[in-house]
Amino acid sequence: MYYYVLEAPSSRATRQLYQKLRDLLTQLSIAGEMVAASPARSAYELSEMGMEKGYSTIVAVGGDHHVNEIATAVLGRAVLGVIPVGASNLVTDIIGYTDMREAANALKQRRLSTQSTVLIEPSTIIFLDTVISTSKLAKISMILDNKVRTHAYFNQLTINRFLQMKLDSFHTTEVKKVFGIFNTGGNVIHSESHFHAKVARIITDPILPVNVSGVAIAESPMQLRLIPDSLKIITKRGTLLE
């Protein structure tokens, strides 16, 4: 049976949606136990409680950050199910469905697939794309696989679950006056870099938060490690065998 961890409802509409979901899951005979995250109990803590009660599948009902938090809790210990509510295509592309009814049907079918994740040491997991961003250019140093050192100025670093990193920066060229009348320069130059590694150390100056969907999950400096095929998740195109 499933243990559903709902994201803290932010509006009346979300509460009504959760009620509809409860009815739908009852119809499909996969209702299980439902709990909602709150300031008093985080989704991580609730997932821990579910596993302690003996549930082998924890279902995250909510958006990107909520799904990532529960993935961190269940990694290597239980199966992750997802009912996307306000989730981006980062989630729906992985699970293969977008609406609640499809998600409920997928949970009933219980097709499993495994996904890679990245560990931010000591214990945070990157399952969905994680972003370090800053409006002003900041310094970044990365040591990749203990072989390559990179130094750059950046505005945004995006890290996905395969430890593929995309580094973006936007420089503005200096504005100069010609004959005291015309302005030249001031153009924005975009620089984009792509790296991948199995192990990475990332240092930024200043220290910056690492966000999933705008919510901080860690901060730099950080040590990252790829964990291939580490997360079992219910998806539309998974296999029926566990």
Binding site: S116, H151, F162, S169, H194
Partner: peptide
């Protein structure tokens, strides 16, 4: 997956 999509070293990057 782990083999990666390739590497791009941007214009402002020293490696």
């Amino acid at each position: 997956g782990t083999s990666g999509p390739g590497t791009v070293v941007g214009v402002n990057v020293a490696l």
